[in-house]
Design a protein around this nucleic acid. Structure first.
Length: 281
DNA sequence: AGCTACTCCTGGTAGC
DNA sequence: TGCTACCAGGAGTAGC
């Protein structure tokens, strides 16, 4: 599933292909991709716009749209489970799972594909309204370990759902939460306020290192879904310590990796490295 | 505040 | 082989 590292990879590859291009044509094979706006309204808002920047916030891709030299709105995209972006010549057959196609002024098209139809590409006039509830970017300098340790101490929630909460820290998903918790030797069901400062710092480091290493390897690909916009798989899946490794030995202690359910999410851990929290009465 | 359950979707797969 | 039932899962929402 695309998480922060995968989205960052998509942004880096798509950006040089589309920045400076003007959107000339808009095709919407699956209208719900637009998040409630009609094809017609979306087309009016977007057609004729020049893409002046492409950037990432959490797991969102953002395209700045300008007309007459001024930004008038943004395309905000979320890949969810199976969403993909790529740029290709605007001829030849369209991918059967194409949900939105933006024809560019250089004869190519920016295509959003999504097998499961969960992904969204919305037009926004108010970015704050759409992205304002997101927590800090885990790789930014403003996200300090002191800030994180203090925030953890204030939460009486299990670590796993807390780290998946985009309002707490933005950009983590199921894979990287499991990996980071294992790296920090913390049990996913442990309550945040029970984590001692030293372990909280270790978790902070684990989150940052895991994400940075995954970006370096262009994200993780283990099913046929996530690919870079150039069609390459990422390679961070070869570094997984727990995710998808249930039944196999822990690379750190040799214990057996288990798969449990925490907050309706499949969760991978080594019970030997990540000691169970004391059960609350 | 924080938990569970449900919804959206489809392809893959386990079980028969 | 061919069928059905179930699963994965990010995030929004509702209900407790």
């Amino acid at each position: 599933m695309p998480e922060l590292p995968e989205v960052e990879t998509v942004v880096r590859i798509v950006r040089p292909e589309v920045v400076g291009r003007t959107i000339e044509g808009v095709r919407v094979p699956w209208e719900r991709t637009l998040g409630g706006r009609s094809r017609a309204a979306f087309g009016r808002a977007v057609r004729g716009s020049r893409i002046s920047a492409v950037w990432r916030r959490a797991k969102f891709l953002v395209f700045d749209l300008e007309r007459g030299g001024a930004v008038h709105g943004w395309l905000v995209a979320h890949l969810r489970m199976t969403g993909r972006f790529f740029v290709e010549p605007d001829d030849g057959p369209l991918d059967p799972y194409a949900r939105l196609v933006l024809g560019l002024d250089d004869g190519r098209r920016l295509v959003f594909c999504d097998v499961r139809k969960f992904g969204r590409v919305t037009y926004e006039e108010d970015l704050e309204e759409r992205l304002g509830d997101l927590g800090p970017e885990p790789l930014h300098d403003e996200f300090t370990s002191e800030l994180f340790v203090r925030a953890l101490r204030r939460k009486r929630r299990m670590l796993k759902p807390l780290l998946l909460d985009q309002g707490f820290v933005a950009g983590l998903g199921n894979i990287y939460v499991d990996e980071a918790l294992h790296a920090a030797r913390l049990h996913p069901e442990r309550s945040a306020d029970s984590v001692p400062p030293a372990a909280a710092h270790a978790l902070y480091d684990a989150i940052r290192k895991t994400l940075a290493a995954a970006i370096e390897r262009e994200g993780s690909s283990f099913d046929r879904f996530y690919r870079t916009p150039e069609g390459r798989p990422g390679s961070y899946q070869h570094q997984f310590r727990v995710y998808g490794r249930d039944g196999q030995p822990c690379r750190r202690c040799g214990g057996r990796i288990a798969k449990i359910v925490v907050g309706q999410r499949g969760t991978h851990l080594c019970r030997r490295c990540q000691r169970a929290p004391r059960r609350r009465a």
